[in-house]
C-alpha cells in the first residue's frame, strides 16, 4: 500500500520541478526581449498616448493638463480632407502593388527551390539600401529634365516633357516602389504553401487553368493577399517622406500632417492624437485580418 502511494508521489514532484524549470527557461528567454520591447515600444507608445491628452501653451510648450480637445482637432475639417487623400493614395498604391505582386509571386512560386530562394532574395535586396536615396534616383530618372524625358525628347517621341513626378502619380509610384516587397512576400508564402496535389486534383476533376486560378489558387492565397494589403496600406499612410520627395509638396498625407505637428507647428499633443488614431486604425485592420482567418505570422514576412 505504502509503496503504491510512494510511486504515485514521485512522478508528481518530478513533474512539478520539471514544470518549474521549464517555466524558468521560458521566462529566461522572454525576459531580455520583454525589456527591449518595454524600452523601445511600450514606453514610447505610452508617452504618445499620454501626450495626446495633454494641453499646449501659446508658444507650443506642453502643459500637463488633461484635455480631449486634441481629438476634436483631429477631426477638424481641413484634416479630414488630408485623411481622405492619404487613404485614397494608400488604397491606390495597395491595389497597384497587389496587381503587380500577385502574378510576380505566382511566377516565383512555380520555380524550383533554388530559383525560388534566389528570386525572393532579389525581391528583398533593394530594401537594404536607404529608401530616400532610392526615391531620389527615381527623381533623377523621371523629372522634367530627367533621363527619361530628355531621351524621349531627343528621339522626338514627345515635344513637351511629361510630368511623371511631383504629383499624386509620383507619390503612388514611390509608395509602390518602396512597399511592393511587403506585398510579394506574404502572397508568395501563401502560394508556396498550397499543396500541389490540390492543383492536380482540380485538374483531374476537369478544371481549366483559369478555373484552377479562380476556384483554388486565389481563395487559398487570400490570407497572403490580406496580409500584403495591410502591410502596404498602413505604412503608406505614414511614409511622409515619399510625398515630400516624390510629391514635391503638392499633396499632404497623414504622415506629413503628423510630421508637421512635431516640427513646424510644434503641436506635439495634436501630432500624438493623430498618431494614436493611426495606431487604432492599424489595430482595427489587424483584428479584421485575424477574424477573416489570417495568420499573424504572415505579417511578420517570415
Amino acid at each position: 500500500m505504502e509503496k503504491s502511494i510512494d510511486s504515485e508521489n514521485v512522478p508528481i514532484t518530478k513533474t512539478k520541478s520539471h514544470y518549474f524549470s521549464k517555466t524558468l527557461i521560458k521566462w529566461g528567454q522572454i525576459l531580455p526581449i520583454s525589456i527591449w520591447m518595454l524600452l523601445l515600444v511600450v514606453i514610447p507608445l505610452m508617452y504618445v498616448l499620454i501626450m495626446s491628452f495633454m494641453s499646449r501653451d501659446f508658444y507650443g510648450g506642453i502643459v500637463y493638463k488633461f484635455t480631449l480637445s486634441n481629438f476634436a482637432q483631429v477631426f477638424a475639417g481641413q484634416n479630414l480632407k488630408i485623411y481622405a487623400q492619404s487613404i485614397g493614395i494608400g488604397a491606390v498604391s495597395t491595389v497597384v502593388c497587389l496587381l503587380i505582386a500577385y502574378p510576380f509571386a505566382m511566377f516565383i512560386a512555380q520555380k524550383g527551390p533554388v530559383a525560388k530562394t534566389i528570386l525572393m532574395a532579389l525581391v528583398v535586396v533593394p530594401s537594404v539600401s536607404n529608401s530616400l536615396v532610392r526615391l531620389f534616383s527615381w527623381i533623377t530618372l523621371l523629372r522634367k529634365t530627367g533621363v527619361v524625358n530628355t531621351t524621349l525628347e531627343h528621339l522626338g517621341i514627345i515635344h513637351h516633357p511629361l510630368s511623371m513626378v511631383y504629383n499624386t502619380g509620383g507619390i503612388v509610384l514611390g509608395m509602390v516602389y518602396l512597399l511592393l516587397m511587403f506585398m510579394i512576400i506574404p502572397i508568395f508564402n501563401s502560394l508556396d504553401r498550397i499543396d500541389h496535389n490540390l492543383i492536380e486534383a482540380a485538374e483531374d476533376l476537369g478544371a481549366t487553368k483559369w478555373q484552377i486560378l479562380k476556384e483554388i489558387v486565389i481563395p487559398l492565397s487570400k490570407p497572403g493577399i490580406f496580409a500584403g494589403c495591410i502591410m502596404v496600406f498602413i505604412p503608406s499612410l505614414g511614409y511622409f517622406f515619399v510625398s515630400d520627395v516624390m510629391g514635391g509638396g503638392t499633396s499632404t498625407m497623414m504622415g506629413n500632417l503628423i510630421e508637421n505637428q512635431f516640427q513646424t507647428s510644434r503641436n506635439w499633443p495634436l501630432g500624438s492624437a493623430i498618431s494614436v488614431m493611426l495606431i487604432v486604425l492599424t489595430l482595427v485592420l489587424l483584428v479584421l485580418f485575424q477574424r477573416r482567418g489570417g495568420d499573424m505570422a504572415d505579417l511578420g514576412g517570415r
Binding site: 499543396d195 486534383a201 476537369g206
Partner: peptide
C-alpha cells in the same frame, strides 16, 4: 489527352480535398 479528357479520376493518397 490531358487528365480531364480521360474518363479517369483519381483518389489521392492524402485525400487532396479543397480546404476552403
Amino acid at each position: 489527352l490531358p487528365p480531364y479528357k480521360r474518363k479517369i479520376n483519381t483518389v489521392f493518397q492524402n485525400y487532396a480535398l479543397f480546404p476552403h
